[in-house]
Amino acid sequence: MEDVMITVENLRKEFKILRRRPGFLGTLRSLLSPEYEVRTAVDGISFTIRRGELVGYIGPNGAGKSTTIKILTGIMVPTSGRVVVDGLVPYERRVENARRIGVVFGQRTQLWWDLPTIDSFELLRHIYRIPAGVYKQNLELFTDLLGLGEFLNTPVRQLSLGQRMRADLAAALLHNPRLVYLDEPTIGLDVVAKERIRRFIKEINRERGVTIILTTHDMQDIEKLCERMILIDHGRVVYDGPVEEVKRRFGQHRILVVDLEGAPEEVSVEGAEVIRRENGRVWLRFNRDEISAAQLIHRVGQRYNIVDLTLEEPEIEGIIARIYEEGV
């Protein structure tokens, strides 16, 4: 199909980890008769991503996120399964695949540490064989959108984290990739810097139709940027669909916080679960499908004297955290 950018079918990746035995004799034995432990990092993942989509790819640490991204970028060969990115199998045609994609690893820069920022762009121009016209046009556009002008001549190691991330984003896009992987592009940034990065990501997705795979731990990134998210845990897809749908499907729980007069010893209300107590303040979790907030307040009011109350709506942050902790 023409408008499919990425197809992943039944992807599996197992790691063989050498079991180390303690002591010198153990090391010797490990060397002579190695014993391996097999760990499954990706356990049968399938999904399809269309051209021009901006997809959040999220999951707790160790869920298999980076392993999937490594396979998609061609850095790693899967144990089994099928992966096609823009018509190519990335790990079979790594160099060709590399020409078409852009990658930002938020945790480590792609830039040359000791050189002025502009020098990194110049080097990438040659490595990617970017035509002079395209290079000039992109550099001007990104300088404008990301405000690179103030630090183009500053060595990368002297840049603030926010500046560095902006430079990294520009570097990953200079060669007009059709597909970009952004791995935690807002990590460690302040609110203003995050907002700027998000605006830019949105802009290149909308204006240039660049397909974007975004991995992040910041749920605001997902809410503000993505229409779709793929949530993985223990190497499997546990949710794949609209971001809004997650709230509906997993966010039936709301929380009523009440301050009760006289801080009663025992608090229990039918239809709600006490999840926290602090003196007179009680947090009650209830399912919106079973009982309405008004009904619950009424019930509480019948048994205790309510001094004050607030109602907490489910936030995606909390919903995801709960999925991470308890499973789907």
Partner: peptide
């Protein structure tokens, strides 16, 4: 160890 070599693998150059 620091994963820096992975950068080389996502660029179109040996």
């Amino acid at each position: 160890r620091e994963g820096l070599f992975d950068r080389a693998l996502v660029r179109p150059l040996n």
